[in-house]
Amino acid sequence: MTSLAARGAPPLSVRAAAPLVLAVLLVLTAIAYPLTSGGARDAVSWTIVVLGAALSVVHAAAGHGLRTAAAVTALVGGTAVAFEAVGLATGVPYGSYTYSEALGPTLLGVPLLVPLAWLMMAWPSWVVAGLLASRTVPRVLVATALFAGWDVVLDPQMVQAGYWTWAHPTPGLPGIATVPLTNLAGWLLAGGVLMTLLDRLVTRTVVADAPRVGPAAPLLALGWMTLGGALAHAGWLGLPGSAAWGAALFLPVFALLAARRWRTR
């Protein structure tokens, strides 16, 4: 099969650097979130999601080929719109909620920002899961847990910003009074479906001789948006419950990754 380089793709060093540049820009923009308010915070939120989605697409393309990146984008976007449209119309599987007009244009009632946010979250979750589990079923389960856990940190922040509202926010996780447990159940269900499809898709569409790009950029995105988000929740946003959950859910993940890397040195 013709290699990416032979087809005029940029050198590997450039392809590897591009996701990292996007990850650094994502972190810098995320740092600005708790320091802004009003329209400036809305602009920061949009920028974070666009950068995160771009990081996912660029990393998938760099390490797995353009065909895989395009297929991942279509799969995640389509799955997001399907689950969110059903959720808005029926309350299943997340519970009853409504989106704010601040999120901009919609498709089937779903703000276009939402599938981009799914893309921002889904690809790093799948990549990091692959570092923790090599077999298909464990990898899908870990990716699903990471995907849903990310939302545990993110959702209270978005509710606080007024981007969506829950009709019945209780009962919720201890310390989080604004987001119902049904939302977590919905994310586990949607994440399980998405990660199963995503795993099969990447396996079937990957370019056999595509150079492998390291996981540093998705790791940085996942780490900062969860643990950095938890820090922002505790120190600036007045969300100690989600801060505690973020630390409890993700510190063990990164400790395990560090331990595995140490053992392989």
Rank of each mutant, 00 (worst) to 15 (best):
T136Q: 13
T98N: 14
G77R: 08
A80I: 05
A129Q: 00
L112K: 03
A85M: 04
G109N: 03
A80N: 08
G65T: 02
L66G: 12
P138R: 06
T79S: 14
V81R: 05
Y94L: 12
L108V: 11
P115H: 00
V76F: 02
L88D: 07
A80H: 12
L75K: 07
P138V: 03
A71R: 05
A82D: 01
T106G: 13
Y94W: 15
A61Q: 00
G91K: 06
P111W: 03
V76D: 01
S134K: 15
L108R: 11
T68K: 08
S134F: 05
A122W: 03
T90S: 14
G91Q: 05
L103M: 14
L66W: 14
A102F: 00
G104F: 01
G78W: 01
T68G: 02
V127R: 05
R67I: 07
A69L: 09
L88A: 08
G104C: 04
G78R: 05
G87P: 04
P105S: 02
P124M: 09
R139S: 12
G130R: 02
G78K: 01
G65F: 08
V81F: 06
T73D: 10
W126I: 12
G63M: 09
L107Q: 09
S96V: 15
T79K: 05
G77T: 11
A89L: 08
A133T: 00
P93T: 03
S100Q: 02
R139M: 11
M121W: 10
A122T: 04
A61T: 09
V72P: 05
V76Y: 11
G63W: 09
S96K: 15
L103R: 05
T79C: 15
L132T: 03
F83W: 13
G78Q: 06
A133H: 06
M121P: 06
P93D: 02
